[in-house]
Every structure is written in C-alpha cells, then in structure tokens.
C-alpha cells in the first residue's frame, strides 16, 4: 500500500500558525515562516551571452553580476551566490515548472539547474528592530549605509549558515536557513527579538501588512 507522506516544513513542529496574531501591534520585530518557497540553484558563465539571454528570457529577471545583489520583485528573485552561481526564488509550488523551463531553455548551453527547494526554509523578519536582532549574531555590517534593499549575503547568523536578503527599507529581511538549522535559528531569533516585542504572523497577514505599509 502506498504511504501518503505530507510535505512538512522544518518549522511545522513549532505550531507557528497557532501562535500567530492577526495584529502585531507595537511589536518591534514581526516574523513568520514562508513555507515551500521555490529555490533553484543556477550555474553558468555570465560572460556567455547566450546563457545570460536565455536565462533572462526564462526567468524574467536579470542574473546580477555585482556580488551580493538581487534582481527581481514580489515572488521572483535571482540572488547572487557566486561569480557563476545564482539562487532563483519562485512562488511556492513552482519549482518543478521553473526547473523544467530552465532546462528546456538552456538546452545545449553549458549550465546547471538544480532544485534545492527542500534544502532550506525562509524566515521573514520585519519591523523597526529587525536589523538590530540580526546584528546580534551576524558579523556583517548591516547598517543601511553598507547593507540595504536589494542586497543579499551568504554569512553566518548565530551558529547557522544563512543567506540574507533585504527586501525593503522597513526593514524586511528574508533569512534562508538550512533545514536542520531552522529550529535552532527560529528559537535564536525569537530569543534575540524578545526585548523589542516579538510577534508571529501567518504568511498572508505578513503580505497584507507589507501592502498596508506601502500605501501609508
């Protein structure tokens, strides 16, 4: 008999939805997990014009060549990981399509497309003290002068290797953390943020908060 295995995010056991609030109020840090965001590792030579053109056509975003920068918006981003390596982000559930499209488009071009969706989960942090919370355990200079919107970095947060991506000036950060470190890092963030007031929100509420802030 076939066994049905439900897809689980690495933070499911923390029951974040049950602790989520509808209105974060004066919390200095608002956080939530973005489950099952599609992540595809793309490698190729940025000096190869055919590769760049085809990848741009398939992804609808540029592959940034400036180290530690991001191109894209909403739910489609390309994060610089190395001089010939990018992490392509898509809406949850789109990884199969993304990989198939990229492989088809890049047929005959020297490139590698790898689905790494399940390897990491994404913790989104927002709020006036989100930056201070991250700075407690990160060797990077996160001051807006040095690290702003549209920047990404692979670095260490606490004792976990992460990819940081700053989405806006709220500031809002997406923290891509490896599966086995997700529980540790969530608890670390919650502990670090508690002095500023910490609220957990569910994913749709987080999107709504962002939209409301934008219209203010």
């Amino acid at each position: 008999m076939a066994e049905i295995v439900l897809r689980q995010s690495p933070l499911d056991h923390l029951s974040l939805d049950a602790r989520a609030v509808a209105e974060p109020g004066p919390a200095g840090v608002v956080a939530g997990e973005r489950r099952f965001v599609a992540k595809v590792n793309l490698r190729g030579d940025p000096a190869d014009e055919a590769f760049v053109k085809v990848a741009k056509g398939a992804l609808k975003v540029f592959l940034p060549t400036t180290p530690n920068t991001v191109d894209g918006k909403r739910d489609r981003y390309a994060l610089w990981l190395g001089p010939d390596e990018w992490l392509v982000i898509g809406a949850p559930g789109t990884e199969g399509r993304l990989v198939a499209d990229l492989r088809k488009a890049l047929d005959g071009i020297v490139a590698a497309v790898t689905d790494v969706t399940e390897g990491r989960t994404v913790i989104r942090l927002s709020g006036v003290h989100a930056r201070e919370t991250l700075a407690k355990g990160c060797g990077l200079d996160l001051h807006p002068r040095a690290f702003g919107r549209g920047r990404c970095a692979q670095t260490r947060l606490g004792k976990a290797n992460v990819i940081l991506h700053q989405l806006d000036d709220a500031p809002t950060f997406d923290v891509y953390v490896e599966r086995s470190f997700a529980d540790y890092l969530w608890r670390w963030i919650e502990d670090g943020a508690s002095e500023y007031g910490f609220a957990i929100v569910a994913e749709p509420i987080m999107a709504a908060l962002k939209a409301r802030r934008a219209t203010r």
Binding site: P67, N68, G82, P83, G139, L140, A153, Q154, T155, R156
Partner: peptide, 17 residues
C-alpha cells in the same frame, strides 16, 4: 578577529573562511 577581504564579497570575518 581578522577581516579578510574576499575578492568577491569584500571584507568578512575570518571565521567565514
């Protein structure tokens, strides 16, 4: 702690290397 200037990423903590 040293700062080592990665040719791609710029100055980073020695612990990252």
């Amino acid at each position: 702690m040293h700062l080592i200037a990665c040719p791609w990423c710029g100055p980073r903590d020695e612990a990252e290397f």
